[in-house]
Design a protein around this nucleic acid. Structure first.
Lengths: 211, 211
DNA sequence: GTCTATACACGGATAGAC
DNA sequence: GTCTATCCGTGTATAGAC
C-alpha cells in the first residue's frame, strides 16, 4: 500500500513520492466531486483545485491536461467499482443475494446519487471519446464472467433452473438497477425499492415475485 | 398544422409568424443535433446557429438565453417521446407487443443513438436544474398510467396473470431498455438484442423465455 | 512541486445597422 | 427578425518565482 511504513521506521514526514501521491489523490477526490456535480465541460480546473485546497498549478504539475485528469479519474472510479462488485456474493445463498439487491441498489444511488451521476456521465463521455470508453470498460468482461459464474453456482446450489444464464442475469440485473436508478432520479415516487428485488427473483426463476 | 394553407389560397411566401416559427424549428433541430453530440456545456451557440444556417443573432431573437433554448428543446423532445410511445400498443396482442419490444428498442438506440444520448443528457441535466426536471417529466405520469392500463388489458385478454401490475411492467420494461441501451453503448457485443424480449416475456409471466 | 501572474482563445450576451 | 461587430467574463494552459 502506498502509505505503509516498515516496522521500526521512525515516524516522519512524508517522502516526496508519498506527498506527491497524496496531492494526486486529493486532486482526484476533488475532481470526482466537481465532475459529478457539474459534468465534464461544466467543471473548471479552478473549482477542482480550490475544492482540493490547492491552486491550478498543482493540477498541472500532476496531470498533463484536463482530459488527462479526467481519464485518471475514470481509471480510479472503475477500479473502485470493480473492487466493490467483485466480492459481493462471497459466502451467500441465492436468496440472500437477491434479497440484498435493494440494499446494494440503495447504497449505489440512495446514499451517493452523485456517484451514480458520475457513472452515467462517464458513459456519455465514452460516446465522445473512444479512449475514455476503453478505460472505463477495462476489466468489466472479467467481472461479468465472475459474477455470471457466481450466479450459475448459486442457482445450481439452490436447485433452481432459471431461464437465463448467470451471465445474462448479471447483465439484466445491472441494466435494471441502472434504469430504475435513472427513473428514480427523475420521479422518485414511481420506483418502489422492492420492485428491483421482485423482478430479480422473477428472472432468477423463483416463483413468489409478488412479494 | 403550422405550414398548412387554406384551399384556394394563392401560393405565397410565408407570413411573418410562419417564417418565425420555421426559424425556431430549425434552430431547435440544430440545437438537438449539437446538444446531443456535445452535451449542454460543450455545445456553443455559435455551433448551433451555424448548423441551422443562421448566426447567433437568430438564436437571441427567438430565445432568451442558452438555458431557455435548452428548455424549449426539452419540451419538444418530451412531446415527441410521448407521441411516439402513447400509441405503440394500438390493436396488438400481448405476444405481438412483447415480440416487438426489440424492434422498439432497436429503433430507439440502434437507429438514433444520439437521440438516446440526448435523453440521458436530459436526465443528468434534471439533477442540476429542477426546472428542467419539471418540464421533462410533464405528462409522463399520464403516459405511465395509460401504458400500464394497456398492459393490464392485454394480460387479461391473454388470460395471463403476471406477478406484476401493468404499471410495474411499464416501469420495468422502460428501465431494462434504458439500462441495456446504456450497456450497449459501452460494450455492444455484450447485449444480445433478444435478451430484452426474453426478459420481458419472463416478467410478463410467459413461460418460454429461453427462446 | 506548488504558487502567482498572465497569455490567449472561446463562449454567452448585447448594441446597433439593415 | 436577422446579421455584424463587439464587450466581457471565464477557462485552459504556460512562464517564472520560490
Amino acid at each position: 500500500m502506498a502509505g505503509s511504513r516498515q516496522i521500526g521506521e521512525p515516524a516522519r514526514r512524508l517522502t516526496r513520492e508519498e506527498a506527491r501521491r497524496q496531492t494526486r489523490e486529493r486532486l482526484l477526490d476533488a475532481a470526482g466531486d466537481v465532475f459529478k456535480r457539474l459534468g465534464y465541460n461544466g467543471a473548471s480546473l479552478e473549482a477542482i483545485a480550490e475544492t482540493a485546497g490547492y491552486t491550478k498549478g498543482a493540477i498541472y504539475s500532476n496531470f498533463e491536461t484536463k482530459a488527462d485528469l479526467f481519464k485518471a479519474l475514470v481509471d480510479r472510479h472503475r477500479d473502485e467499482e470493480i473492487a466493490t462488485q467483485s466480492n459481493q456474493f462471497a459466502g451467500k445463498s441465492l436468496e440472500e443475494v437477491l434479497a440484498e439487491l435493494d440494499e446494494v441498489f440503495e447504497r449505489q444511488v440512495g446514499r451517493d446519487p452523485d456517484r451514480f451521476a458520475l457513472q452515467i456521465e462517464l458513459v456519455l463521455a465514452s460516446m465522445r471519446d473512444p479512449e475514455v470508453r476503453r478505460r472505463l470498460v477495462a476489466g468489466s468482461e472479467e467481472l461479468r464472467d465472475k459474477t455470471g459464474a457466481s450466479f450459475d453456482a448459486l442457482l445450481a446450489k439452490a436447485g433452481r433452473t432459471a431461464p437465463f444464464t448467470g451471465r445474462e442475469l448479471s447483465v439484466l440485473f445491472t441494466a435494471m438497477a441502472t434504469g430504475l436508478a435513472l427513473q428514480r432520479m427523475l420521479e422518485p415516487e414511481t420506483v418502489d425499492p422492492k420492485l428491483l428485488v421482485r423482478a430479480a427473483r422473477c428472472l432468477a426463476g423463483i416463483e413468489d415475485a409478488r412479494s
